[in-house]
Write a protein that binds this DNA or RNA. Structure first.
Lengths: 213, 213
DNA sequence: GGATAGTAGAGAGTGTCGCTATCCATTCAG
DNA sequence: CTGAATGGATAGCGACACTCTCTACTATCC
C-alpha cells in the first residue's frame, strides 16, 4: 500500500506519518520509484503501536524511539531487553530525592530480600518510587511508605495475571512488544479501576448515591 | 513571610510563584503595602501540593486548577467532591473508542453489579478504561479484557489499604486533599512496584541475574 | 495525451505549554 | 541613604508534536 492507504487504515494523517518516518519511528517503505514507496502490514502494525505508546502510554517521541529500538534489538537477552524497555517507559520525574524517602525504599527492598539495591538512582524505576515518596513527604504524607507492603500484596496478583497473559497470548517473538503494550495499557487500566474502586468505597462509606458511573 | 522566603522554603523559583499567583493556583498574599505581601504556612503547603500534582501526578496547570477548586469547594458533599477531583485527575486520552471495547467494559460492570453504567463516555474514568481497551485491540491485544477481573482482585487489596490510610492519617478537613495526593502518588508507586514485580518475574522465569538493579 | 490527484523528501511554520526575563515604581533592610 | 527585594504586568523563550509548504516527480482516469 502507499502512504495514503496507510493513513486511512491507521487513522493517522499523512503528514504525521511522514514526520514519524523522519523521526525514525517507522521504517521507510520500499521505493518503487523516486517518489513512490510501498508499505506493508508490518508498517501498519508498527504505526498502531507507535500511536498506542503515545496516546495510552503518554510517551514522548524520544521515549517511543527508545522502546522501539529495544524491541528491535535482536542480539540481547530477553531479560536485558525488558530492562531497557522498562527504563524507556519509566520517566524519572523532576523531583529531588528526600534522604528519608530513599531510606524507606531501601528498607522496603531489604524487607523483600532485594538488599543488593543500594543505589536508588541507578534505575528510572527505583528513582520513580523514591521520587513519589519524596513528594508525599513534602506535602506532609510521609506515612505513605506504610502502603508499600499492601500495594505489593495486590501487585503480586496483578503481576501474576500479567505473566499468565504473556505466556498464553504471545509467541516468543512478540514477548517484548506484549510486555510494553501490556505494561503501558495495564497502567492505564489499573489507574481507572483503582479510581472506580475508590468511588465505590466512597459511596459505601460516605454514602451519596450511585458509585461514579 | 515574603515571596523570597516562600521560594526558598518550597524550592520553587520566585517568577514561577508569581506565575502560579497569576494563574490562580495560589491565593494572593495579604498586602501590607502596595508592593508588599505576606504569605503564611498555608501558602507554602498549597505551593507544595501544586508542585506534587505537577511533578508526580503529571497534571497540567488547568487540571491543577480544577483539582484545587474541587478541594476548596465547601458547599458540596464529600462524595461529589471526590467525583469532581477524580474527573480532574483523569485525562480522557485522545483515542476513539472501539465498540467491542465499550461492550467489554459494560460486561465488566455488569459482572460486578454496576449495571447502571450504560454510557462509558459520561465519565473520564470509564472513558479512560474503554480507551485503554480500544488501544489494546488496535495493536492486536484484545485478550487484555481477560485481565480486568484479576486486576480488580489485586486492586481491591490496594483500595482497601488506601481507605485505611485515609481513615487513619487524615483529619476530616483534609480527606479530599489526601485522596488526591494518595491517588496520584499511589499511581506512581503502583507503576513502579508493578515494574519491579515484572523484573523479578522476568529474572525468575527467564533467568538473567539480579532483578532490575 | 492531457488533466488531476497522489507521492517523496525536506525545511519552515504553528500552536500550546510551562515557565522565564524584563521592566517599573515602590519599599524595606542595613 | 542606598541597594536589594517586591508586586504587578507584559513579552519572550525553548521544548514538543505536529502541520504546512514547496519542488519535482509519478500514477491514473478520461
Amino acid at each position: 500500500m502507499r502512504v495514503g492507504e496507510l493513513s486511512k487504515r491507521s487513522g493517522v494523517a499523512v503528514p504525521t506519518i511522514k514526520y514519524y518516518l523522519r523521526e525514525g519511528l517507522l521504517p521507510a517503505g520500499v521505493l518503487t520509484s523516486p517518489n513512490q514507496a510501498h508499505y506493508d502490514d508490518e508498517h501498519l502494525r508498527r504505526l498502531r503501536l507507535v500511536r498506542a505508546l503515545i496516546d495510552v502510554g503518554g510517551l514522548s517521541i524520544a521515549s517511543v524511539r527508545e522502546v522501539l529500538s529495544a524491541i528491535d534489538t535482536r542480539d540481547d537477552s530477553l531479560h536485558n531487553k525488558l530492562g531497557a524497555v522498562q527504563e524507556a517507559i519509566s520517566q524519572p520525574g523532576a523531583v529531588e530525592l528526600d534522604p528519608q524517602a530513599v531510606a524507606d525504599v531501601q528498607a522496603f527492598f531489604a524487607r523483600h530480600g532485594q538488599s543488593e539495591c543500594v543505589d536508588v538512582t541507578e534505575s528510572n524505576v527505583t528513582h520513580m518510587l523514591a521520587a513519589a515518596l519524596s513528594s508525599a513527604r513534602s506535602v506532609g504524607h510521609d506515612q505513605i511508605r506504610d502502603l508499600l507492603d499492601p500495594y505489593l500484596e495486590g501487585l503480586k496478583i496483578i503481576a501474576q495475571a500479567d505473566l499468565e497473559y504473556v505466556v498464553r497470548h504471545t509467541s516468543p517473538d512478540d514477548v517484548i512488544e506484549a510486555m510494553v503494550v501490556g505494561t503501558l495499557i495495564g497502567d492505564t487500566v489499573i489507574k481507572a479501576l483503582r479510581r472506580l474502586a475508590h468511588a465505590q468505597v466512597s459511596s459505601e462509606v460516605i454514602g451519596g448515591g450511585a458509585a461514579q458511573g
